[in-house]
Design a protein around this nucleic acid. Structure first.
Lengths: 110, 110
DNA sequence: ATTCTTTATCGTAATATTGCAATATTAAAT
DNA sequence: ATTTAATATTGCAATATTACGATAAAGAAT
């Protein structure tokens, strides 16, 4: 085997898992943080910011894009990447919600 | 290759990536959600709740445990698993913070 | 003591991820 | 038209993940 049995889980569970998985690598966390740090999102210099070769960075960007975490528009011979606000909101609410639910059942647990 | 160059990134970036990676599978999302749904955290029936074989579930639990997302105490011949509140708080604040930072730079972006 | 129940580990096969050199692509600049 | 600059794709090797059958381990129940 090796492939995930995604069809046995709910759409919501798969959605969150896809987002989490895409963020499950320090290089991709670093990319997200860099995209937020720079003011404009014309980001031709992401490669210089990371300790990885250009093809590797390109691949990480592709994965973030496939997961829907970043959006990219071609602009001349550079690409304008930026983080999708809706997705970040989704993650924020998901974990916010989980945390709230945990607080409400304090005491029943270890 | 195949291994991540974790030593080239900050501790914080690695920390978040490890948590995200551990949540990057629908089965593990389902496990977290189930642990929150049940009131008590004596959870001998996680296996029945998931469309996966017992060794597979055990392996997913181990991964969540290694990442520090769940804590488990042996209790007789069952195991008491529960979600670590501190970790969930960490995720909540991380994504909350990112979202806030995004809102503040609205307009500069695509 | 033996059986039952529950969780963990081992071994293994299938597939996915990570990383990079080499090469391609594409548009701007000369 | 050529060169330059930036990003993408291909191909490949190393490693990691996913899944499960078989088996082990360990306390509970009879």
């Amino acid at each position: 085997m090796g492939a995930s049995k995604t069809d046995h889980f709910t759409d919501r569970q798969n959605e969150i898992a896809i987002l989490a998985k895409a963020l499950g690598h320090p290089a991709r966390i670093a990319i997200i943080e860099y995209l937020l740090k720079v003011d404009t999102c014309i980001c031709g210099d992401i490669v210089n910011e990371l300790p990885l070769a250009q093809p590797t960075v390109s691949q990480h960007l592709k994965e973030l894009k496939n997961a829907g975490i970043i959006k990219g528009d071609i602009e001349g011979n550079t690409v304008c990447y930026c983080v999708d606000e809706k997705v970040m909101h989704k993650l924020k609410s998901y974990f916010g919600n989980i945390f709230t639910r945990m607080e409400n059942k304090k005491g029943n647990c270890c």
